[in-house]
Every structure is written in C-alpha cells, then in structure tokens.
Nucleic acid binder design. Structure first.
Lengths: 145, 145
DNA sequence: TAAATAAATTAGTCTTAACTAACTTTGCAT
DNA sequence: ATGCAAAGTTAGTTAAGACTAATTTATTTA
C-alpha cells in the first residue's frame, strides 16, 4: 500500500525520520553521531546505517565523509528538529493521559510519522487545555481502571 | 527498523490490518468482498490482493476458494471488528478536535496501526469528556486559527 | 450457446530497508 | 612503529509487499 507520509511535507520516509531523530539526539547528547552509535540507538546493524547515511548525504540532509563522520546540513537539522518537536508534543500529550512510559514510548514511535501538521497543532492545543484542568485529568485516570 | 505492531496483540502487520478493515467494510456494505473490490478500495492491483488473500487464508483469518470468493473466519472477523472499532474511536476523537475530514482520514489511516490498547482506552475516555464539554472544544477551535 | 467482457490467478520483477560475512580503515597501546 | 581492536564499508542476500504481463476462469449478452 503506498501510504504517503506528508506529516512534515518533507519527502522523508518514516525510516529516514527515525534516523534523523536519533542522529540529532546523539549530536545533542554527545556532540557527534557515529555510525556505531546510530546503529546501537536504532538497534540495527552498522552496515544498514552506513547505507542510509550515504543516502541521506545524497539527499543533502547531512554531509558525510567516508570513515570521517557526519554533520547535519541546515535542511537536515531543521527537519530533525521538527521531528523531535513533534515527538515531544506527542509524548507530553500521552503523558497527560496518564499512560505509562513504556506504552507512550512505543506508541509515539509508531504514530509520530503519520501525524499531520494540523493534527499536531490540535493536539498541542488540547495538551495546553489539559494541563490547566487537573480535574479533567483526574476524570480520565479514574476511567482507566 | 523492526517496529513491532502489538496494538491489538495480534500478529497482524499494518498491511494485514488494512486488508481486514476494508474487507469487513465491503462485507458490511455489499454483503461480500471480491478481489476486484478490495483492490479498488485499497487502490492496489488485483494481483496483490489475490496474493494477500491467499496468505490470509493460510493464516486462517479468512476462508478463500480460488475464483469463488472469501468469507472471514471467526478469528478474522473478530480482529477486523476490533480494527474497525479502533478506527472509529480515533476518527471521532480527531473530529472533536475540529479537524477536517481529509486530514482526519489521512492521519487515522497512518496512526491506527500503532495505537496500543491502553492508549486507545485513554483516548476513548478523553473523547467522552470532550463530548460533554463544548466550552473546552470551543477553546481548542479558537487555538487552531 | 458461443463470443465477449470481467474477474481472478500466476509468474516474474521491483523497491525499501533490513541482514551477514568479508574486508578496509582508523586509532590506540605497547 | 607496529599490531590489534574498534569502527566503518562493501557485496551480496532476504523479506514484505507492491507491480506488470500473460493466462485462466467466470459471467454476461447477443
């Protein structure tokens, strides 16, 4: 089934989004993202990462020199940031629903690539409202017995 | 990336879920689901449908006789119903957020396969609360300008 | 009922994105 | 400086799930 992925109107597949997300995380936390670290983070082989990294270089989302490492391009970083932001918003939303971290993590990782900008905005607004209505959140929790 | 699909703790992939969903829809609306109709509904070739239908038969989610048609098994129908139900709950939820039908349709089709049972329950509870709080819904709509 | 059309099937191909195994490069420790 | 381990790369394979083209079966209509 050719299910498109226009969530961020980038041409990025879910897979590409996952890579960018992890790469940005690594850069933020360690200052760099090596093939071996990306592979560990995504729980896939180094070979797969090498392939994808070369592809992302071809797509100008990062600059890669063989054996020497990579840096995100302007475009790549921008995209990665938006992906990370979307991830955070979804996580916060589910957190407010009282779900546990394991479930949140799993579901967000699955859904995040499929959420369009308008839906994300709506969820963001809802999250804000939910945040200031503890009584409503309490209602939800009791419903989850 | 080996992203599992434990939403309904069935072994069904997203693709299988899509097929079952459409097959049930067809059966509900026309009384039967032919290869040609499934293909049209999913916008894929008849050949692809034939393949999948044979696989679903092997997995005992439906019974299929070459050239003669198919019926869902008990297990297949049960699963299909749960998939359809999840689809409806998500659609209703997004509807209450004031999103337009195109967006809802797209996003639900993407997300539905990745929502776990606990998350679905939480969203269901939230939907109920949202339904009885028009003021809150109005707040959301104004935030979506 | 026979021809024409619609539906279904088969066989083989393509793409994406994983994998393993084998090899190369780099960097560190002696 | 060399040798070993860690990191990275290449080549070739696999699996899911699409596709087309060719063929077969079923159905409709003249």
């Amino acid at each position: 089934m050719p299910v498109k992925n226009p969530g961020l109107k980038s041409a990025a597949s879910s897979t590409v989004e996952d890579y960018l997300e992890r790469i940005l995380e690594l850069i933020n936390s360690k200052g760099y993202a090596r093939v071996v670290d990306i592979a560990a983070a995504l729980e896939i082989s180094q070979a797969s990462v090498t392939n994808m990294v070369q592809r992302l270089d071809a797509e100008r989302l990062l600059k890669y020199e063989k054996y020497r490492g990579l840096v995100l391009t302007e475009a790549g970083e921008k995209l990665a940031r938006r992906i990370a932001h979307r991830h955070r918003l979804l996580t916060e939303f589910l957190k407010l629903l009282g779900l546990d971290d394991r479930v949140i993590c799993h579901d967000v990782e699955g859904m995040e690539h499929h959420i369009s900008v308008p839906t994300l905005r709506a969820i963001e607004a809802l999250t804000r409202q939910l945040r200031r209505r503890p009584a409503l959140r309490a209602q939800l929790e009791t419903a989850l017995v």
